[in-house]
């Protein structure tokens, strides 16, 4: 069990190092994805399958798509196709692929032997060893820590209002005859 924990940690550290040393943002993103997935597996090993899934859905899924969208939007044009071709070299995807494969094998092994959630080496004796079901997560969020959830809501409100203010463009009020975009 502990050996799987160490392999996953090594994958996490290696992929994160690759993230910060890549020059091309998309290459870095591929490694970032692997890093996030290995973090998810670490959560799973610690006995938190719900957090592991959230890590994959929210970080590896939603935020990563957002990143890629922004990058794709930035370099539209004829060079895009050429760049696409360059990106598809094996040199680019073999690294992340191999690391992801390790994670995949690990999760298959774990599922097959149904050895799950006994906790990593740091979890022993600290009350982390038992698996936390999603029911327990929901109960603690909406009963024990309900004030914390409310605070997080207010935090998001502050962020949304601030971003809306900073990002707003000032309307220029031109008469429609002066507006060149809509000729009569």
């Amino acid at each position: 069990m502990s050996i799987i924990w160490h392999i996953t940690s090594a994958v996490a550290i290696l992929s994160t190092l690759m993230v910060v040393t890549r020059y091309n943002p998309v290459h870095a993103l591929l490694y970032l994805n692997v890093s996030l997935m290995s973090l998810a597996l670490l959560f799973y090993l610690l006995g938190a399958p719900f957090a592991a899934l959230l890590e994959i859905i929210v970080y590896a899924g939603a935020i990563m798509v957002l990143f890629i969208f922004v990058i794709m939007l930035l370099n539209l044009g004829k060079e895009t196709a050429v760049q696409e071709k360059k990106w598809l070299k094996p040199r680019v995807w073999v690294g992340p692929m191999a690391l992801a494969l390790i994670l995949l094998l690990e999760i298959f092994y774990l599922l097959h032997t149904s050895q799950q959630m006994t906790g990593g080496p740091y979890a022993n004796g600290r009350g982390l060893g038992t698996a936390v079901s999603s029911r327990a997560v929901a109960l603690s969020l909406f009963q024990t820590y309900v004030i914390g959830v409310e605070m997080a809501a207010l935090l998001l409100m502050a962020a949304v209002v601030g971003a809306a203010h900073i990002g707003r463009h000032k309307k220029t009020n031109l008469h429609r005859f002066l507006n060149e975009d809509h000729p009569l």
Binding site: M151, L155, A158, G162, A163, H165
Partner: peptide, 11 residues
Amino acid sequence: GLEILTIALYA
């Protein structure tokens, strides 16, 4: 609490 304070301050 600290993040509510700080994020409101950014804006």
